[in-house]
Amino acid sequence: MTAASRAPARRPRPAHLRSLRRWLGAALLAALTVLVVLPILWMVTTSFQAGEKMFQLTTEWIPTVWHPENYPNALSRAAFPTYFFNSGVVSVAVMAGNVVFCTLAGYGLAKFRFPGDRFMLLLILSTLMLPLEVTLVPTFLVVYNLGWVNTYQGIFGPLLVDAFGVFLMRQAILSVPSDYIEAARIDGASELRILWQVVAPQCRPALAVLAVLSFRDSWDQFLWPLTVVSQDEYRTFPLGLVKFGEYYGNPATEQMAIAVLATIPVFLLFAVLQRWVNRGFGLSGLK
């Protein structure tokens, strides 16, 4: 770096200019944020619109007439309460499965040395290249052979453990000081107790991330339930929503109402766990 280029940069800017720049930046970022979330706002506002508004050229951001009845109407079109319930059962099961099994495996891989441990870790990581989209046909045959077609466990079974979850928990548990574990072990605590009372509390941020992401991904599942469910009582909401537009009197505005309802649970879970999630993402330094 030359001396010439160094000189001007050293001159401090006047304070008011700095503050102006800051607020200008804030305004720009806010504008950008609005632009990014605009589709979400559109979804919400459209869900309160009259059906025929969908065919107009202009977007009416605040409905002149609100139609909250879109929500009860939409819910009554098909068995949406059942579909949401099914999605809830499946997603909670997937979340629980991931939290339990990924933590167990993560603990085993992070704090124990045994022959083949490294190989096991690589083996688990390698399943990242085997998503359900790839193994759809044989996975279906496995689930069928288990007698799980048209059951809840058939839907959530193949989603119960995710390699990323194992990896996430292993990395989190690595940073738990082994001295704590040793101390508990010397005190005679059982291994499960150590995991539950010593390790897990230290990993709350990672667990929160795992919970939110696994819930979201299960809530999102479409292809798998489409393949494995053939009875209405086990359909999940995405299956219902895709077919929603196919019948008379199902206006797009009501479709948006279902979309809004489908979004709420994930947002809520995120809101509840947000404090931990932010730390889990390594954002504790963020002002």
Binding site: C102, A105, F114, P115, D117, I124, V161, A163, E191
Partner: peptide, 15 residues
């Protein structure tokens, strides 16, 4: 060693 492997076992069987 056995305990460690046992912790990993459920996930491994699943995979």
């Amino acid at each position: 060693q056995l305990v460690g492997a046992a912790f990993v076992l459920p996930a491994l069987l699943f995979f």
